[in-house]
Design a protein around this nucleic acid. Structure first.
Lengths: 113, 113
DNA sequence: TGACACTACCTTGTATAATAAGGTAGTATG
DNA sequence: CATACTACCTTATTATACAAGGTAGTGTCA
């Protein structure tokens, strides 16, 4: 069925997103401190769907691994937000991630030839 | 601990590999028909470690999803090999994968700015 | 010919993690 | 004060990478 193919492809896309998710989040936070809901919106704009059930546990993981910190900040239009920032360790980690990304990206480029 | 950081980074690298694994395998097979052990060697050369326990189930999955076919061929130096080829559906799938890759790759590039 | 190395296949059990679904609570607004 | 909206978080399910271990064909050489 064509539907089958479609479903498989969505699944495949999801697979790929996963791998870069953590990297992308660290990248985003390194640019400016931000909170979960805003991150989700950013991804949506970039056409990379990420849902709440994915991002909250992930941010918690990164926090308890010492890559992120957060502080509560009041919002003028809704409940308070957890603004995340990169720790020094998080920064080191992001650098390592960048290299990994480069390596994988090069590998794919080579395979395509 | 520094060791902790190291372990985390290896883990991160693994995460990233996962996402592109299926795509990379389809790419490799699209270039020339090949068998599991040879694919593992290819990855090793590209510094993307992949082990048997990963690749055999994955190839089976791709086969039963109709993306791959295989045929047994005798070897002059060892047991017979399962040579895999892309089906038409596999080819379509690979094309979709390529677009996905492009999208994600572009997104990362943008986030880096 | 029989022991060992090598290549190639495959399976089982475990751990991790993304996702779907559903829940709590603060703030704003008519 | 009811409703909408935003933002947080948790639980149960499912998928799957990997470590470890197993089977079997072929080659080598003493």
């Amino acid at each position: 069925m064509d539907n089958d193919l479609k479903k498989n492809m969505e699944n495949a896309a999801a697979q790929m997103r996963k791998g870069v998710l953590e990297f992308a989040i660290l990248l985003i936070i390194s640019k400016k401190e931000t909170y979960a809901s805003e991150i989700i919106s950013s991804f949506k704009k970039a056409k990379l769907t990420v849902v709440e059930g994915t991002i909250y546990p992930l941010l918690s993981r990164l926090k308890s691994s010492g890559l992120l910190n957060y502080n509560w900040e009041e919002s003028k239009s809704g409940p308070p937000r957890k603004y995340y920032t990169l720790t020094k360790k998080g920064q080191q980690f992001l650098n390592a991630y960048s290299q990994q990304w480069q390596n994988i990206s090069d590998t794919i480029t080579n395979l395509k030839k």
